[in-house]
């Protein structure tokens, strides 16, 4: 990249486009493992203090309450040429705090929901959330040793997924496998979103 030292040149700095993909799923499903296996560095961690901007009414007391929570997220980076940089965020598993998800999902290209076949129900909240929000997502079935083997159609039925949502089997520890998961997601996101855009050229 050209050096951009002087103030005059600052205006012409060309930064890459940053893209965000979310890696969701239940506790211990393999989110951090997937971020690590496919990113160019080991997973980093960032903390964000988030405030619920909606009308937060406490369930028990009915008193208006402004909810604030600190969430820690694991993330990794994949540089794609000079023009793009992809960030993978392992979402925190705090379904209580939907506003955390809203903040993270804004501007995301799509999401991977990791399903752990030992605890399939743990990924229901993630699936529900992305369906409702309209974020393109796929389900990646992480195959742990000793767990019962499901086929893709069984998983689709169990999660009540529409026919358009891809389901793939994976091993989150393997780079090739995680890469395949991301390729499947981006293809899916392109199919579902790109046609709705202004015609190109």
């Amino acid at each position: 990249m050209d050096s951009v030292r002087s103030e005059g040149e600052a205006a012409r700095v060309k930064l890459p486009t940053a893209i965000k993909i979310l890696i969701a799923g239940g506790f211990g499903a393999g989110k951090t493992t997937m971020v690590g296996s496919v990113s160019e560095t080991r997973p980093l961690r960032t903390e964000e203090l988030l405030t619920d901007r909606g009308s937060g009414v406490d369930d028990l007391s009915g008193v208006e309450e402004k909810k604030t929570t600190t969430v820690a997220m694991d993330f990794g980076r994949i540089s794609i040429g000079d023009a793009h940089v992809l960030y993978l965020f392992g979402t925190p598993g705090q379904e209580r705090f939907w506003f955390v998800w809203d903040e993270l999902a804004l501007g995301a290209m799509g999401a991977v929901v990791i399903a752990d076949t030992r605890r399939l129900a743990d990924c229901f909240p993630s699936v529900d959330y992305f369906e409702r929000r309209g974020t393109p997502f796929i389900v990646a079935v992480n195959c742990f040793e000793g767990a019962r083997r499901y086929d893709v159609e069984e998983i689709r039925m169990a999660l009540d997924l529409g026919p358009a949502t891809p389901v793939v089997l994976c091993d989150a520890r393997e780079k090739e496998s995680s890469k395949n998961v991301l390729v499947t997601l981006v293809e899916h996101a392109m199919r579902t979103r790109a046609p709705a855009q202004e015609p190109v050229g």
Binding site: A10, L15, T17, A18, I78, I80, L86, M190, R193, V200
Partner: peptide, 26 residues
């Protein structure tokens, strides 16, 4: 420092971006 333009208000990306990311991942 230069800070990239504020985040997109929508999730939409252009077709070229999807293609570039796919090629890069592959």
């Amino acid at each position: 420092v230069a800070i990239q333009e504020p985040a997109r208000e929508t999730d939409a990306l252009d077709l070229e971006t999807y293609k570039a990311v796919l090629n890069g991942l592959r």
